[in-house]
Simulated scan of single mutants.
Amino acid sequence: MRSRLGLSGLHWSVVMPVLAALVLALTWGRSLSAALVALAGLLLGGAVLSAVHHAEVIAHRVGEPFGSLVLAVAVTVIEVALIVTLMADGGDKSSSLARDTVFAAVMITCNGIVGLSLLVGALRRRVAVFNAEGTAAAFGTVATLAGLSLVLPTFTTSTPGPQFSPPQLVFAALAALILYGLFVATQTVRHRDYFLPVTAEGVVIDTDDHADPPSPRTALTSVGLLAVALIAVVGLAKGVSPAIESAVAAAGLPASVVGVVIALLVLLPETIAALRAARRDRVQTSLNLGLGSAMASIGLTIPAVAAASVWLEGPLLLGLGATHMVLLALTLVVGTLTVIPGRATPLQGGVHLSLLAAYIVLAVSP
């Protein structure tokens, strides 16, 4: 492992995030030509693969479920910083940015990542097996956070429009932080075994049987390179977003499609890591990544934008419209029926993916 990550190795996972960060620094705040957009796109893909590699190194060192938590929180923290920055630059035009981004993350993680993981796991072993207790706890927390933060603002009457009044926003932010903190404590301390992979017989797998854990020095190197790679992923996604906006406008598509594309790019590291885990019969790890990312997206974004709304201009629109509430309700009902048995067939994976497809189709054609 040292030869792969050490200075003498110059492994691709070391070179790609450094190159991506360098190009990001040189192009930040500039209008990119077609050639630079293509280069940024290639480096963005390389940075995504590098982030997945280093996240797996860290996960192997710290073990599950800490490994899944590292990638989910790291991506979300940088994503939150990007959202707040864009809201500060966008004024009234970005009043719904936090809502649109969080909802896109919920749909992509709870239907895309979860659906793909179940499909891959079930096709490999006929039935995808996971720990129903831990997965149900995670999904219930996601459902509560989504309901409190994205549904209630549509029905409150203290403030016109789908937004909270200041006291309501403070409550939503505190509730999100407390619930997320409580879940992390449950996942990593009190009931850690609920979030570990299980065999078809229901036996918890508490060890990684592939290789010896990396050294502390290698793990620390991966922590630094993971941070660089994730910053590069989010920064380059922001850099190519004007080109995406132009392409979307030229195709006559709604502006909301841009948010979907950006969310897909930002969530690529978790998606690839989840698929790799599912292929190794670690479906529980895949579900930890997907549901953990959804939870972190709500639990960290809502408090951050609530704090930023003190100095940001314009309203903060958080409430979903009727179409998106229907999709969220279907996701929660189907997800509940999926996690209760603790095992799933390819059908369940296909159902979740169909909900993601419906979300994307309705984003393109509202």
Results as ranks from 00 to 15, higher is better:
64 E>G: 06
191 H>F: 15
301 T>Y: 07
200 A>V: 09
66 F>M: 06
309 S>P: 06
87 M>N: 08
63 G>A: 07
139 F>S: 09
2 R>C: 10
93 K>R: 00
172 A>F: 05
243 A>W: 12
214 P>S: 06
330 L>S: 09
188 T>F: 00
294 A>K: 08
174 L>R: 03
94 S>F: 15
218 T>D: 15
133 E>Q: 14
343 R>P: 02
348 Q>Y: 13
20 A>C: 07
258 V>S: 01
90 G>L: 09
315 P>E: 06
211 A>L: 13
123 L>D: 05
108 I>M: 03
365 S>E: 11
56 E>R: 14
323 T>N: 05
196 L>Y: 00
155 F>K: 07
55 A>D: 14
303 P>E: 08
330 L>C: 14
183 F>V: 01
87 M>K: 14
146 A>Q: 00
248 V>I: 02
148 L>Q: 11
286 S>D: 04
74 A>E: 10
314 G>M: 08
64 E>T: 08
215 S>Y: 04
293 S>V: 06
67 G>V: 08
119 L>Y: 07
145 L>N: 09
291 L>D: 02
311 W>N: 00
135 T>N: 04
281 D>Y: 01
268 L>N: 00
95 S>C: 05
164 F>G: 01
170 V>Q: 13
338 T>G: 10
309 S>R: 06
266 V>K: 02
258 V>H: 01
73 V>M: 13
277 A>G: 14
263 A>Q: 13
267 L>D: 15
106 V>Y: 05
30 R>W: 05
283 V>F: 07
230 L>K: 01
270 E>H: 10
70 V>I: 12
2 R>T: 15
67 G>E: 01
319 G>R: 03
283 V>P: 07
346 P>Y: 01
242 P>H: 10
87 M>W: 06
274 A>K: 03
253 L>M: 13
277 A>C: 09
106 V>K: 02
138 A>P: 12
209 D>Y: 06
204 V>C: 11
328 L>P: 00
339 V>W: 06
219 A>M: 15
45 G>K: 07
315 P>T: 02
171 F>W: 13
89 D>Q: 12
24 L>S: 04
138 A>L: 15
321 G>E: 02
350 G>E: 11
170 V>K: 07
272 I>H: 05
174 L>M: 11
70 V>R: 03
290 G>M: 01
330 L>Y: 07
358 A>H: 12
17 P>Y: 01
287 L>S: 00
64 E>H: 08
326 V>W: 15
104 A>V: 03
280 R>Y: 13
106 V>P: 01
328 L>D: 01
338 T>M: 15
